[in-house]
Write a protein that binds this DNA or RNA. Sequence first.
DNA 1: TTGAAAGCGCTAACAT
DNA 2: ATGTTAGCGCTTTCAA
Lengths: 340, 340
Amino acid sequence: MAHDARRRPTLADVAARVGVSAKTVSRVLNEDGPSSAATREKVLKAVAELGFQPNLMARNMRVGNRDSTIGLIVPEIGNPFFGTVAGGIEEAVRERGLTLLLGSSDETVAQEHALVSTFLARRVSGLMVVPASGGDHRYLRRERADGLPLIFLDRPASGLAADCVVSANAEGAQLGTGHLIAHGHRRIAFIGDRPAGLYTRKQRLRGYREALAAAGLPYDRALVVDAHDPMAADTAVRRLLALPDPPTALFTANNFASQGAVSALSEAGRRDLAVVGFDDLPLAGALRPGLTVVAQDPAAIGRAAAEVALARLDGDRSGARTTTLPVKLIERGSGELPPI
Amino acid sequence: MAHDARRRPTLADVAARVGVSAKTVSRVLNEDGPSSAATREKVLKAVAELGFQPNLMARNMRVGNRDSTIGLIVPEIGNPFFGTVAGGIEEAVRERGLTLLLGSSDETVAQEHALVSTFLARRVSGLMVVPASGGDHRYLRRERADGLPLIFLDRPASGLAADCVVSANAEGAQLGTGHLIAHGHRRIAFIGDRPAGLYTRKQRLRGYREALAAAGLPYDRALVVDAHDPMAADTAVRRLLALPDPPTALFTANNFASQGAVSALSEAGRRDLAVVGFDDLPLAGALRPGLTVVAQDPAAIGRAAAEVALARLDGDRSGARTTTLPVKLIERGSGELPPI
DNA sequence: TTGAAAGCGCTAACAT
DNA sequence: ATGTTAGCGCTTTCAA
C-alpha cells in the first residue's frame, strides 16, 4: 500500500509544539488526572492546529488489549432480515463507543470460521454470529470461558452453551399453520428454507407439524419442499400445484419462500390458494388479498443481542441464556381464503 | 475479578516455548524470510498447542499504521438498498484481507461526522460515505490529499472533489417518466424523497422534468410531493387523488415512495392509475399489474466503490473520478395502463 | 501539576 | 537460518 502522506501528527508532536510531555497531552485529552487551565488551553489549541486525532489502535492496544468493536457475522448481508438485525445492533452499541464490524459467511462454515478468526485476531470486544448450518462451535469454548461476549443470533450454537437470541419459530409456525387450519384447510404445503438441517427450518417445520397434529390432520411429506431463493420457491410451488392431490394452502417458512410462492401463484393466475408466510415483506399489504404473515422483529433481535453483549462486557458472568422473542400474526386476508 | 481471562499467548510466549526468538516465530507465521523445516514445524506445533492468535492490532500498528478495515457510513443500515450496497463492498474487499466497518448516520450530518471521526481515529484503510444531505466535506480534503481512499456513494461529496459512485438517476427518471408519457399520460405526479435537497431526489426530479419538457408537457408543482417513508407516501398519494384535477399516473422516486404509493392505491381500490417506481422491490412482480420500475443495481454500486478504493490503495493517484452506473427499466405492466 | 521510563505485541532493519 | 535492537503511538507506573 503506497501511502505518501506527511506523517499524521502524534501525541508527541502535539507535546513538542506545546513544550510539555506526551503524558500531559494525554492527560488533557482523556481528562485523566489534573492539569492547569493554562496547559489545557495550550494543548487544545495545538491539537486543533495540527489536526491531531488520537490513534485508537494504539490506545486500545495499550489500554485494554481489546478493540472497541463488535464483530457480526451473517450469512448474507444483502438479505434485508439480517440487514435490519445489524441495524438494531449498531444502534444499540454505538452509544457505548463500540463500532460494528460486519462480515458475510455466505452460509458456509469455512467462511464463517475465517471471519471468526479474523475478528478474534482483531481482539473484538464481542462476537455475534448467525451460524452457518452444519458448523461446530466447540472451538469457541475457550473464548467464552475467557469472558468474550459471544452471542448467537437467529440460530443457536452447536456443541456450545452460549448466549443466544432467537425468535419463537415453532410457535410462530404453529400460529400461522393454525390460522390456515382454522379456515378449513386440510392440505397445507410447507415451503421451507434449505439446507434441511437449518435450525429455523426445522423449528418452523416442527410448529407446522404440531399444528397439523393438534387438528388431527395427517402429515404428508409430499407437501413439504425446500427452496433457498425466490426462484426455487417459485418452481417448487408450480410443482406442488401440478400434484394429483394439490394443496389448498401454502405456509411459506421465510421471506424468500414467500416471495417466490406469491409470484408463482400470481403468474399462474391462481388467486384461490390461501397463503401465510413467515417474515413480513414490504409490499405484503398491497397484494390483493393482502399477504398474511407471521412477523419477526429483526431490529429487536439485534437490540436484544446488543443488550446481552453489553451486560457481559459489564461483567455479567451468569450462565448462558437464550432469549426468545415473540412473533406476531398479521392478518391481511390471504390466510382466510376458503379451501378450493 | 473472580476468575478472569488468562493472558492470551503472545508471540513471545510461543518463542519461549519453542526456544527461538520472537522474530523467528513471526517469520514462520508470515512466511517472511527463510526458516528451517524443523523450526517451522516446532513453531506451528507450539502455536496450535497454545492456541496462539496473532494480534492484528499490534501488527497493523507496526506495519502500516493503518487498520485493515474499510469504513462505511450509510444513512440507514436497515434499508435494503444500503444493505445490498454494503454486501457488494464486503464481498469485494474481503479477498484483500479487508474487513467492513459499518455505521449509520441516521441521515444526520452530526452523526455522520462523529462516525467519520471514529473511523479516522481507527486509521481505516479506506472510507466510504453515503453523505447525509446538507453536509460539507471540505474538512476531509487533507485526508484525501494524504492518500486515504475516500469514496462517496449514491450521492456526491459536497465541496470536495472526491471519488464517487452513483446511479444514472436523472436518466432513469427520464426513462421512467417517458414510459408513462409514451402511454398517453399528461398528468404525472412525482413522489420524491425528503429532504428536498437530497441529491437523488433532485436528480430524479430533473429527469422527470426533462421528460415532461421533451414531450411538451407542463410542469405542475402541485403534482410534486415529498415523503421519506411509506406511510408518508401513502398519505401524499391519497391527497393527490383528492385533487380537483388529479394525476393519472405516478412516478415514485424511490423504494419507500413506491411502497407507500402502491399501498395507497391498493387500499383505495384504485387499479386505474399507472405507476412507475425508482428502485426494484421484492414483490413488484407479484402485484397485478406488476410494478414497472427503474432498477438500480445496489450490489454493483458497492463493487464499483470497492474497485476504486482498492485501486487507490494500490497507488492510483489520478484525479477524482465519478462512476455512473446504468439503471434499467423493468416493464411489468403498471406503467402501461392508459390515462383514466 | 507534571515528567521519565517502560512496555502493550508485533515487525523493520540490521546484525550474525 | 536466526537473533537483536528499536520503535509504531499510546498509557501505566512511579517520581518529582
